[in-house]
Design a protein around this nucleic acid. Structure first.
Length: 587
RNA sequence: GGACCCGUGGUGUAGCGGCCAAACAUGCGGCCCUGUCAAGGCCGAGAUCGCGAGUUCGAAUCUCGUCGGGUCCGCCA
């Protein structure tokens, strides 16, 4: 080893010991005679004192030392003189009086400072990610991520779960996200697919009698990026046999509830046990299938109040079978024309035809539609919404789907501008009773709302031919602070039900055999009832670390355009490689 | 596929039609300094304002295009 101690561990009790440290020059303070070097490694900072009585070679070396040089320094640990201790540093009680300094490596001037937390252009950070990783922020985030994963592994292992690795080279699946394909050299024109999740494999592990499985699993989806989405991401994938829905929910809820005080003691649960909502309920109340429960501003259905309204915007929406809903923005009655216009623009960008705003001022209702709201209607409005003078009503009148989407988005917008949500609160909740199928307007067919291996409610089996949209599934989501944190379901373990689902999805017997023959056959060999879920680790750590996007908790993330800007990937393949893979690039 | 925002020395910002051959901080280079810890002092180098075209007597500043980055919608079983 190049060092006897880390740069974070020396204390007063080490005084008098001769030690060797190795690390990076965090900061250098040259006083002409004495020179201070803050030496940094992953574990902390230690102040090193270079006294002028050292040999000339050492002093010359030290005078050349610059930020981020890599040094090995031997010396004696000394308690700092009275009044010179630094309570801001964990090692501030002591300093290392250097006797020998060795340069392990030099460093050019850096593109940005390691020792400062100032914001640096993210592209620059990603290009020099290995430097960014030296900074406090990334180090802290990766340490937190480690703590989270370690807790999960330990917790699940102690409860009889087996960590099993599943292949990255697997088979393409229809539906779902776009696959990343890997060409086969041995089989011209054939491809592996990187798994979007180990879904099939973990179900087959259940058929294999593993009973309780988990994996810190990398998943790949070739879709456009968001702040909370990367082309490759990590899930705590888990699956259990002989369980009902509530067994899975309980296991995961207990895991997370136990984890929080360990990894982030400053974070508080909003409620325990976690609240449970139906899918319908969260859409209706919060306009989102992943509601942020840390604040109110729920959606109010005011269709009834305006059923006979003269106001053409409301009336025409209602006549077309739509609805009128509103949210109340607290204290926003004084919004300027410009602010209201911006809200309207947001609403229109999301697909609304417009946004009706009404300010509840001390002088009464104000806004372009105020004249259409009578005394009685206003009284009902106030009664339903609990709005106070000084508040602002925002109405959207349209189809249910659009009303919920737009008001849900505006609600989250107000959360941010009005700072309505406490960042230290983790509002975990369960969303249950998802519809099993969704009508795909574009392709005029039914899609699985969760995935095609999800168990439909047994009592709804007779609706496959009559009313598929009304079939509920045994799927569940875990949500937190406006993010979908996990998603799972009880799976189909009966061949006959799986066939029913395939049929409705338009997957014929021949196609089912070709694509899922292994699954279908497995179900015929004594597949146990099973279910599971898969919390997203990146999103979880992002929330726990108070980071605004997922890239901050991934060592080497891709940018929005799915490029690795450090290595500059993807990149063209050599003609020889393409030839071996039987691939011709067309344009 | 679409909408919006951003692009000024190494880094972070200011400037938003003439006062700018561009300012400030930090970093960088040199000199001084024996107790600092975001050390301090003095001196210095460093940007044709992403790129291209246009408007104008005059463009970092306005317009259009383009490239790069970000946020969101679509997409994400």
């Amino acid at each position: 080893m190049y060092k006897t101690h880390t740069c974070g561990e020396l204390r007063g009790t080490h005084a008098g010991q001769t030690v060797t440290l190795a690390g990076w020059v965090h900061r250098r303070r040259d006083h002409g005679g004495v020179v201070f070097i803050d030496l940094r490694d992953r574990f902390g900072l230690t102040q090193v004192v270079i006294n002028p009585n050292l040999p000339k070679e050492t002093l010359d070396l030290v005078s050349n030392v610059r930020s981020e040089w890599v040094l090995q320094i031997t010396g004696k640990v000394q308690k700092r003189p009275e009044g010179m201790q630094n309570p801001k540093m964990p090692t501030g009680e002591v300093e290392l009086i250097a006797s020998d300094v060795v340069t392990l490596n030099t460093a050019k001037a850096l593109p940005f400072m390691i020792s400062s937390d100032e914001e640096v252009d993210e592209n620059m950070r990603l290009k020099y990610r290995y430097l960014d990783l030296r900074r406090e922020r990334m180090r802290r985030n990766l340490e937190l991520r480690h703590a989270v994963v370690l807790f999960m592994r330990t917790y699940l292992s102690e409860r009889g779960f087996l960590e099993v690795e599943t292949p990255s080279l697997f088979k393409t699946t229809p539906e779902g996200a776009r696959d990343y394909l890997v060409p086969s050299r041995v089989y011209p024109g054939q491809f592996y697919a990187l798994p979007q999740s180990p879904q099939q494999l973990k179900q087959l592990l259940m058929v294999g009698g593993i009973e309780r499985y988990f994996q810190i699993a990398r998943c790949f989806r070739d879709e456009d990026q968001r702040g909370d989405r990367q082309p490759e991401f990590t899930q705590l994938d888990l699956e259990m046999s002989f369980v009902h829905r509530d067994d899975v929910l309980e296991m995961v809820e207990n895991l997370f509830t136990a984890m929080l005080p360990t990894v982030t003691p400053h974070k508080k649960l909003l409620s325990s046990p976690w609240p449970r909502f139906t899918y319908d309920e969260v859409i209706t109340r919060f306009g989102s299938d992943k509601p942020d429960l840390r604040f109110g501003m729920e959606l109010n259905d005011v269709s009834g109040i305006f059923a006979k309204s003269e106001f053409v915007v409301f009336r025409s929406a209602l006549e077309r079978g739509g609805m009128v809903k509103c949210i109340v923005a607290p204290g926003c009655a004084g919004y300027t024309r410009k602010q209201l216009d911006e809200l309207t623009v947001t609403a229109k960008e999301l697909g609304a035809k417009g946004l009706v705003t009404l300010a509840l001022t001390p002088e009464g209702l104000k806004g372009s539609a105020a004249k259409f709201v009578g005394e009685a209607e206003l009284a009902e409005l106030v009664k339903m919404t609990g709005a106070k003078t000084g508040d602002l009503y925002l109405f959207v009148a349209d189809s249910a789907k659009l009303v919920h989407k737009v008001l849900g988005a505006l609600r989250v917008g107000f959360r941010d501008t009005l700072k309505l949500a406490d960042p230290n609160v983790m509002a975990f909740a369960w969303v249950l009773d998802f519809p099993m199928f969704e009508w795909n307007e574009e392709n005029q067919k039914w899609d699985a709302a969760h995935h095609m291996f999800t168990m439909p409610r047994l009592e709804h089996l007779d609706r496959f031919e009559t009313d598929p949209s009304s079939i509920l599934s045994d799927a569940y989501d875990m949500v937190c602070n406006g993010y979908e944190m996990a998603s799972g379901s009880i799976r189909i373990h009966r061949r006959d039900i799986q066939s029913k689902v395939f049929t409705l999805l338009g997957i014929g017997e021949e196609e089912a055999q070709r694509k899922f023959g292994h699954m279908l056959e497995a179900f015929e060999f004594g597949a146990p009832p099973h279910g599971g879920m898969a919390p997203g680790i990146d999103r979880l750590v992002m929330l726990l670390a108070d980071e605004p996007n997922i890239r901050e908790v991934i060592a080497f993330p891709k940018n929005q355009a799915a490029r690795d800007v450090m290595a500059d990937a993807p990149s063209p393949a050599e003609p020889k490689q393409l030839k071996e893979l039987h691939i011709k690039v067309s344009d």
